[in-house]
Measured scan of single mutants.
Amino acid sequence: AEKTGIVNVSSSLNVREGASTSSKVIGSLSGNTKVTIVGEEGAFYKIEYKGSHSYVAKEYIKDIKDE
């Protein structure tokens, strides 16, 4: 089941290729951006990003809701 969340950062949140802080950064999301969460892996959520799937750190996503 998909969930949505809100990016909870003051500046921007790195979007990564994989579920690791050493993964390549492929983009960023600004605070209060709504994201669609399709899964989770460790400390990361797998999200829909620009037509494919990428990862963001869970600690920076708030207001998780089931869609």
Rank of each mutant, 00 (worst) to 15 (best):
A1N: 12
A1H: 14
A1M: 14
A1P: 13
A1F: 14
A1G: 13
E2F: 15
E2P: 15
K3F: 10
K3Y: 09
K3M: 10
K3V: 08
K3A: 06
T4Y: 14
T4H: 10
T4F: 14
T4L: 09
G5F: 06
G5S: 03
G5A: 05
G5C: 07
I6L: 08
I6E: 04
I6T: 08
I6H: 06
V7Y: 03
V7P: 03
N8Y: 10
N8F: 10
N8I: 13
N8E: 08
N8K: 12
N8S: 12
N8W: 12
N8T: 12
V9H: 11
S10H: 11
S10G: 11
S10Y: 08
S11H: 14
S11F: 10
S12I: 12
S12V: 12
S12N: 10
L13Q: 03
N14Y: 11
N14L: 15
V15F: 02
V15M: 06
V15C: 06
V15R: 02
V15Y: 03
V15Q: 03
V15N: 01
R16V: 07
R16P: 01
R16N: 07
E17V: 08
E17R: 07
E17H: 06
E17P: 02
E17I: 10
G18T: 12
G18P: 01
G18Y: 14
G18E: 12
G18R: 12
G18L: 11
G18C: 13
G18H: 14
A19H: 04
A19D: 02
A19N: 04
A19T: 05
A19V: 05
S20F: 08
S20L: 06
S20A: 07
T21L: 15
S22P: 03
S22I: 08
S22T: 13
S23W: 03
S23Q: 03
S23K: 03
S23R: 03
K24N: 08
K24V: 07
K24L: 08
K24A: 10
V25K: 05
I26K: 04
G27Q: 02
G27F: 03
S28G: 06
S28R: 13
L29A: 02
L29K: 01
L29G: 00
L29C: 04
L29Q: 01
L29E: 01
L29F: 04
L29R: 01
S30E: 13
G31F: 13
G31N: 15
N32V: 05
N32C: 14
T33M: 10
T33E: 10
T33H: 06
T33Y: 06
T33R: 06
T33L: 06
K34G: 04
K34N: 05
K34A: 07
V35F: 04
V35K: 00
V35M: 02
T36Y: 14
T36C: 11
T36H: 11
T36R: 14
T36P: 02
T36W: 14
T36A: 07
I37W: 01
I37R: 00
V38A: 04
V38F: 06
V38G: 01
V38E: 03
G39K: 03
G39T: 03
G39F: 03
G39P: 00
G39V: 01
E40N: 04
E40M: 07
E40C: 09
E41F: 09
E41P: 01
E41A: 08
E41Y: 09
E41V: 11
G42F: 04
G42A: 05
G42N: 07
G42R: 04
G42L: 05
G42D: 06
G42E: 05
A43F: 08
A43I: 09
F44H: 03
Y45W: 12
Y45K: 01
Y45S: 00
Y45P: 01
Y45A: 01
Y45R: 01
K46M: 13
K46T: 05
I47C: 02
I47Q: 00
E48S: 09
E48R: 12
E48Y: 12
E48L: 15
E48M: 14
Y49H: 04
Y49F: 12
Y49D: 02
Y49V: 02
Y49C: 03
K50Q: 12
K50H: 09
K50Y: 09
K50L: 11
G51Q: 06
G51C: 07
G51V: 03
G51P: 01
S52I: 11
S52F: 10
H53P: 06
H53I: 14
H53K: 06
H53M: 09
S54H: 09
S54Y: 15
S54M: 12
S54I: 05
S54F: 15
Y55M: 01
Y55R: 00
Y55N: 00
Y55P: 00
V56I: 08
V56H: 00
V56R: 00
A57E: 15
A57N: 08
A57Q: 13
A57R: 11
A57L: 15
K58M: 07
K58E: 00
K58Y: 02
K58W: 02
K58N: 01
K58S: 05
K58F: 03
E59G: 07
E59Q: 11
E59L: 10
E59I: 13
E59Y: 09
Y60M: 07
Y60T: 04
Y60N: 07
Y60Q: 06
Y60P: 02
I61N: 01
I61P: 00
I61F: 05
I61T: 01
K62Q: 10
K62A: 11
K62T: 14
K62G: 10
K62S: 14
K62H: 09
D63N: 10
D63H: 10
D63W: 12
D63F: 15
D63M: 15
D63G: 08
I64M: 08
I64G: 06
K65F: 10
K65Q: 11
K65T: 14
D66L: 13
D66I: 14
D66V: 14
E67L: 13
E67D: 11
E67W: 08
E67Y: 10
